[in-house]
Design a binder for these strands. Structure first.
Lengths: 135, 135
DNA sequence: TTAATAGTCCACCAACTTGGTGGGCTTTTT
DNA sequence: AAAAAGCCCACCAAGTTGGTGGACTATTAA
């Protein structure tokens, strides 16, 4: 399951996608419109900024905005960033790989099944972007 | 990600599948062969018993065994039981559904995407059984 | 140059989950 | 009656989740 944090992130990013090229958006505006606890949202947006998804401006007329066009930001990227691995097993993960002790990956049936699940999921989330997330 | 508990559960169930119809298997044997902490495994097997997946016999010659044939026990069932929801969002879950406040499910793009992900995943795990999990 | 605006950063928090462990009790078989 | 083996309860440390509070810094406008 996606954490609440991830769900908040997606809502906020969806909102920022709609406002793309309309100048910076206040944290407080996003929080209010999307009903996200303000301080929590602050942390999330900062994290997304550090990950180079968002940029911000301080002072009057400031706020947050997408650094790239919504259709250039993949859903998979956001999930990995905010939520962590997409795969069901570490030994199957592309970005968070950890080898599996006492499951030799050459012929582990669970491993193989989870590769399939991973690819099925990636087939979707790697091919959708924030542009697909607008209301 | 599947919890370690789930991974242990699958290893244990895989082992019990191989020994299906060969009489009860000791917890200690499973723990040793599959390198699972004994007391932890005890909890897991008990839980699976209460969920009607396993049955057990006490005393000498006792142990655990599958209640049904391995090919009758779906991987999806075990995941839900031991790990919880398969879906990425509560509002998309078939077995752990919770309605989504401030995402009206009629036209929420994230919702729709996650339905796709869910179905892609279920397409696999609902059609594989413990029989597919033997080494 | 000062005040207002708005993001940044740090520290702390309660509640829950995860991954266990220990010890005794009960049931079954010999 | 003793041994075997599962059952059950309680407890634990460490980490994660979902926050909150407060001060600080950068920017802009008056």
């Amino acid at each position: 399951m996606l954490s609440k944090k991830s769900q908040y992130a997606f809502k906020a990013l969806g909102y920022l996608s709609e406002k793309y090229n309309a100048g910076p958006v206040l944290i407080s505006e996003i929080a209010k419109k999307k009903k996200i606890p303000l301080k929590f949202l602050e942390n999330i947006l900062l994290e997304l900024k550090k990950a180079d998804i968002l940029d911000s401006k301080k002072g009057k007329g400031g706020g947050y905005f997408l650094k790239k066009s919504p259709d250039k930001i993949k859903v998979a990227t956001i999930i990995r960033l905010v939520n962590g691995p997409i795969s069901m097993l570490p030994c199957v993960s592309l970005y968070f790989y950890e080898r599996c002790k006492n499951c030799n990956e050459k012929h582990c049936a669970l491993h193989d099944m989870m590769v399939e699940v991973r690819d099925a999921t990636l087939g979707i989330v790697e091919n959708r972007t924030l542009a697909d997330l607008q209301d």
